[in-house]
Structures are given as structure tokens and as C-alpha cells.
Write a protein that binds this DNA or RNA. Structure first.
Lengths: 254, 254
DNA sequence: ATGGAATTCTCAATGATTGAGATCGCTTTT
DNA sequence: AAAAGCGATCTCAATCATTGAGAATTCCAT
């Protein structure tokens, strides 16, 4: 019985296969992929086989399926956030050695923050983020900062949505969110203590491109204590340094 | 006239579109993609459109096509080299602050080195590598090291091939390569001065997984001067630290 | 050996995909 | 202002790659 699934392109099936890899899944079986993607197992098997031939997926010795190195390579070297990451990395390293805490760089992606770079400190406070990980906009300092500088339509969309609660500090009502956003805009930074995890506080400042547009957030995650706010000045200095090193539109090729 | 191109899957066309992004190409026009991939422009336009819908490609304000953030995200968070990179990053940072030169982590991919992490030093010597960049196995210290620990069949395959020449120091004959590989195995590290660029020297040591298998090379790129070799001891210590912090065979799921 | 689960293979039916050419939209030239 | 040039998208009929049920195979665990 062929083609019973109407109106579906081959590409969308391939995409569904790769999208089946959720955060934290490094290896999946074909059956698991079939289950998650809703594809017939024969179809999943065939497509996995073909994608493996291109190096986009790869098979373990025990037949499990992983994302292929070739896909990582293509995505990494032409990523649209590449120039941002290159400009920010040296600055983040300096910052890292000064404050000795988690440093992270996030961008707006869909209605979440996507973290594109991250430096961790061994003994530092608990931190949920990972490179290529996401967090909700209302519950993280990076997210709140990005939302504060986002178009009004997006702000209203998020405000109108139910807000997931993580701790008793998490912003959970439209009013709270609205005034938090106003405060971020007034201060020029976001500071959230215990909103995602009781023991952690985050401070985030905007990273602007040379035209002044906010393109990312630079944040530090520190223990939730009294001196947490003191990190903001050095963060702001670092953010300005990132902007300066983006100064010249086209970075040297090759 | 439909389907004149026989024996080609849709997937392979989509892959060809994305593979059209060579190193250094961040944005391409549909016409350029069509030219490079050999696809009919109507087909290219349609597939680009569809991939953009999934966030795998994205369009600039001027209609140019870029790799999409979604593809970067999927590739980054499930990349097979993720655990290696996570284990290596803190060590690489320490190394970076000690030697103040370019530090890079490479893996064998196809018949080239693929660099998966890299820390650069502002005033340091010229360096051709980038994250997700590649270099030939015979002309870089990282490559030579990985080849020295690779299966004999691969070594013979590379030895039998013409060797691209970059400087008058570049290994260019089968005999030179064979003895260089033997020396790497004897010493346990690779040291190449001026093989890729006259002013630069590279030193690379193996990174082993907890089972002792060589999975990557850790290298430092320094000015081509007399003290270059002195970096090897600290590199070896760092490599051992990476192995220690690597996960034991079966990484914890979820 | 035997059972069971996961994966791959087989195969006929078919609708998603294809590419030539028309159209649209924008810039440059006359 | 009109024309020419160029890139991108759309139209549409012909068709072959793709599909999924089921069979066959492989691989474990017993």
C-alpha cells in the first residue's frame, strides 16, 4: 500500500529523522527514531541508511544512530552566528579568567534563548545551559534581556502565554514580566536571582553590533549571594569589547 | 520534461544544496547554489524554500541563503565529538593561558584532520585552521600525529597519494612520510616546523580515551623558533588530563 | 536450539517531484 | 521612460523514485 501518507515531502521526513534527536540524545536506535518521528520503520531504516551514506548520520558499532561529523562540520563552519562567536570568544575567555564563573553567550531563536558559546568553571554553581541548549525567555537572565530589546509584538506574545515556573522566584504573571522587562530596559542589564534554580543568579548585558542593534546577550552565572550584582560592570565592559571587535563588517576570510 | 535526471534521490539533492556551502561561504544566492550543485535552478529554488521552512537554511534581507540556526543547533548538541570537546575545553583553556599560543583539537575525518575546537591568541603566529576547518594529514602536526596512530591501510593509502606541497619543508615523498610517521610513533608526539607556513611550527600529542585508543590530537601552534619544542611536556600533561576527565565507555544517558 | 526483538529487504502501486519555459520583480543601461 | 538583463519563483504535465505491508534476516538472550 504505497503513499498512504499524503502531502508529505521526502525532505520533511528526513528532517523529522534528525529532529528526533532531542537535547541530550547522542545515539538512538532506528526503532526509537521511527517512534519519535512517526515514520514507518522501513522508511526510517531506509532514510537513516541514506543519510549515513552522506556522513550526515553515522552508525555505532552497535548499530545505534548518531549525528554525523559531516553535518556538524557544515553547520559549524557556515553558521550564521559564526562571526558573533569569533568576536566574542577572546573576550569571554578574559571574562572567564577574571570572574571564574560560567560565562555564556545567547541569541534569540524562535521564542527562546539559544546559547551559542559557553565557558564553564569547574567548582562553580549549578547551570542548566549547554552550547546549543535553550532556555525560556522569562526565566533566564539572558532570555529576559533579549526579550526586553525584542520587537513589541514578540514581547506581547510571550506575556500572553503561560509562563513555566521553576522556583518560587520565577516570573509567573504577565504583570511581573511586563515590569521586569521595563526594568531591564531602564537599567540596561538583567539580573535574576533564583528564578531558575534557588542557588544560582544570572546577570546579562546586551551585546550590540556596530550599528547599535542588540544581537546577543552576554551573561555570567554566579552563586545567589549578595555580591552577585557586582559582576555587572565588568560584563558591560566585556560586551563593549565584543562590539568593538565586530566593528569591521567582513572578518578576514580563509 | 520531468525526471530526466535518473537515479537520484531527493535527499541527495538536498545534501548537495547544503554541501554547496564551502569553507568561507556564509551566504550564497540561489543561482550560485544551483551552479555549484548542478541542480536545475527551479529545483534549487524549491528545495531552498522548503529547507528554509524547517530552519535549516535561512534567507537574508537581500534573499541570500545561509545555513540556518536550527541546523547548527541540532548538529552541535548531538555531535559525536561533543563529549570529547566538553572534556577537552577546560584543559585547553588552561593550556591556552599558560602558553599563550593557538591551541587546537583535531580528529581524523575521512583522510584529513578536522579541527573541532580551537583557541586563538591575539598576537600569535599565523594559523590556517578554523573550527570545523580541515588540513591534510601529511602537512600538519595534528594530521601527522593522527595518521601515525591510524590503521596501516589508511597510512598506506596516504603514502601512495600525491602529497600537496606548501613550503620547502613540507613532507613530499613517500619515504619522508614513512619515516616521519615512524618517528612520531617512537617519540609519542609530532613536531613540524615550517611545513605549512615558514613562520609557524606545530607540536601535537595524542589524546586517548579511557581505553587507550587515540581519539584526537591536541596541538599548539607556535612561532618557528628554537624553543618551540619546549611546549611538548605541558601538552602531554594536558592530554592526560583530557583522558582523565573523559567519560567511561558508556556515557550516562539522558 | 528456540524465541523474540530489531532491522533490512522485496515489490507493486502511485503521487510527489521534476525541468522547460513563462512570469515576476528588480537593477542597470540606453 | 523604455528596454534590456538578471535572478528568482511559478506553472504544469509526464513519470519514476518513494512508500509501507509483509517477508526475510540478523542478532541476542535464554
Amino acid at each position: 500500500m504505497p503513499r498512504t501518507q499524503g502531502g508529505e515531502s521526502v525532505l520533511s521526513r528526513a528532517v523529522r529523522i534528525i529532529e528526533a534527536f532531542g537535547p541530550g540524545d547522542t545515539a538512538l536506535t532506528v526503532t526509537e527514531i521511527s517512534r519519535r518521528s512517526g515514520l514507518h520503520i522501513a522508511t526510517a531504516s531506509r532514510l537513516v541508511e541514506e543519510l549515513s551514506g552522506f556522513g550526515w548520520l553515522q552508525r555505532d558499532e552497535d548499530r545505534k544512530v548518531r549525528i554525523g561529523v559531516r553535518m556538524w562540520e557544515l553547520a559549524s563552519r557556515a553558521s550564521p552566528t559564526l562571526s558573533l562567536r569569533e568576536a566574542a570568544m577572546p573576550v569571554m575567555e578574559d571574562l572567564h579568567s577574571i570572574v571564574g564563573q560560567h560565562i555564556q553567550l545567547g541569541v534569540m531563536e524562535g521564542d527562546e534563548v539559544l546559547f551559542v558559546e559557553r565557558l564553564t568553571a569547574p567548582g562553580a554553581v549549578i547551570n542548566y545551559t549547554r552550547v546549543a541548549g535553550r532556555l525560556p525567555l522569562h526565566a533566564s537572565s539572558s532570555g529576559l534581556l533579549l526579550l526586553a530589546y525584542a520587537p513589541a509584538a514578540q514581547q506581547e506574545r510571550i506575556i500572553a502565554r503561560p509562563l513555566e515556573v521553576f522556583t518560587d522566584q520565577t516570573i509567573s504573571t504577565p504583570q511581573q514580566l511586563r515590569s521586569a522587562l521595563a526594568e531591564v530596559r531602564r537599567q540596561g542589564f538583567a539580573f535574576l536571582a533564583g528564578h531558575l534554580h534557588p542557588a544560582a543568579a544570572g546577570a546579562a548585558v546586551p551585546v550590540r553590533d556596530p550599528l547599535g542593534k542588540v544581537v546577543a546577550s552576554l551573561a555570567v552565572i554566579v552563586p545567589n549571594d549578595a555580591i552577585a550584582r557586582s559582576r555587572i560592570a565588568v560584563l558591560q565592559a566585556a560586551s563593549a569589547a565584543v562590539t568593538r571587535s565586530m566593528e569591521y563588517p567582513a572578518p578576514p576570510p580563509r
